[in-house]
Design a protein around this nucleic acid. Structure first.
Lengths: 231, 231
DNA sequence: TTTCAAACTAACCAATTGGTCCAATAGAGC
DNA sequence: GCTCTATTGGACCAATTGGTTAGTTTGAAA
């Protein structure tokens, strides 16, 4: 009943549109919604075609299989992530401000694009077997890596950051602090009996992440180690 | 073929065992392996009965449905978590050592019980709908909460920890830093082209987590905020 | 020893699911 | 106008899946 695309004969209200790219995009959008909410096995092809308002034949005309469709959605997810992270403007900023910005924006991406989280979780449940088939993914971290190294180097030079920080480990931590909070918000809310989704909680979390990362970067390193390695 | 519990009627070789509890436990163990690896929708009842070496009807004799079985496994997962976290010996320790221990052991639980991670991820994909049906879960955080507050209070009293730390936010962060690293290790390994699973990487991560949490706790708080809130 | 509920099995079923076949229609470029 | 190909329609299929029916075995109480 929605009036987006209706296949009809010549003059009537909605002519059948022939735009393969736009159609594929509609299918991919519908597929993303379905895969992100239900996971790979829970997702139903019938649900996708209903959402996209296309016939089943058309879906299989454009995509070979459910799995290929899933991989395409996954690639799209990574593309979103890459685009959003590329947008983070940190050039020319003071290193502390730049790092603060990086933390906040990384968190914000996960808030704005919640499908990213469930898609990545689903893919990790499958032990990365689909992503391994896709060559597009690798470039994700490149641009970001350069930025992070630059910020760290500048901060080090200015004497505000400690030395010897592993940028990969750092980036994993920056992601982790926001990602886990959002990814596991349902079970966490249950355990703590606290609503983690309202805007106030989100803002508090964001501040907490910045606080933690900057504390780490600006502290002397190994601040206390009175206990030997614990088995 | 394992000879753990062999039911013996008088003497004969392969008697049918009648031990409801042990059988249920075998089913639950098999179900956990299946659910943890495949997720709820990907898990197959047939795979569970094959693993548990029981007939299908026996499974349905003990459990009402796939969903009930899943919930029982989920409860078991939480029980594991609760037991393991209760084991963490922090009483009487210096607050810094206690916190270090807490970080390391929290991470270690996720390493030792990898099913916990996938079960929680699966449950969060389903937006906690099953856990909501289960009354057993709530007590999880209680014991831990008391410990954390005690450590924080002592550290504060001694002047080594900053004031005003939210124990819930802190615990989420401690969990996040290890959980995300393990949960997303497949996609992360892909992006960074680095093996995150070998023992050396794991140990490095563990040290990093301790470092970060202790830096946060022992720093002055709000160490740098030259930039206003970023939209 | 009898009895009976509980533990157990094998075969079976109805519904779902990803995917196909066949036929028809129509827009866009040549 | 001709010809691709995007598009629809719907019947159809084989395989899979969660779940059931009908019946057998067994331990232990009475």
């Amino acid at each position: 009943m929605s009036s987006v695309t209706e296949g009809k004969t010549k003059d009537k209200g909605k002519p059948r549109i022939r735009d393969a790219i736009q159609t594929q995009d509609r299918i991919l959008t519908a597929a993303q919604a379905e895969f992100a909410r239900k996971g790979y096995d829970g997702a139903r092809v019938d649900a996708i075609i209903a959402r996209a308002k296309v016939s089943k034949n058309l879906l299989y005309h454009h995509f070979r299989s459910k799995e290929e469709l899933y991989i395409r959605v996954l690639e799209r997810t990574y593309e979103t992530l890459r685009r959003r992270q590329g947008d983070i403007p940190i050039a020319g900023l003071d290193p502390v401000d730049a790092m603060k910005r990086l933390c906040e924006d990384t968190f914000q991406v996960f808030i704005d694009e919640p499908d990213v989280i469930t898609m990545l979780n689903t893919e990790n449940l499958h032990r990365g077997k689909h992503i391994a088939k896709s060559p597009i993914i690798r470039s994700l971290y490149d641009r970001l890596s350069v930025s992070i190294r630059a910020i760290l180097a500048e901060g080090e030079k200015q004497g505000v950051f400690r030395k010897g920080i592993d940028p990969v480990e750092l980036y994993i931590s920056i992601s982790a602090l926001g990602y886990f909070y959002l990814s596991n918000r349902y079970t966490l809310s249950m355990i703590f009996d606290r609503d983690l989704r309202n805007p106030a909680s989100i803002e508090r979390r964001k501040a907490h992440i910045v606080d933690m990362i900057l504390s780490y970067l600006t502290s002397d390193g190994e601040p206390a180690a009175t206990l030997g390695p614990v088995a």
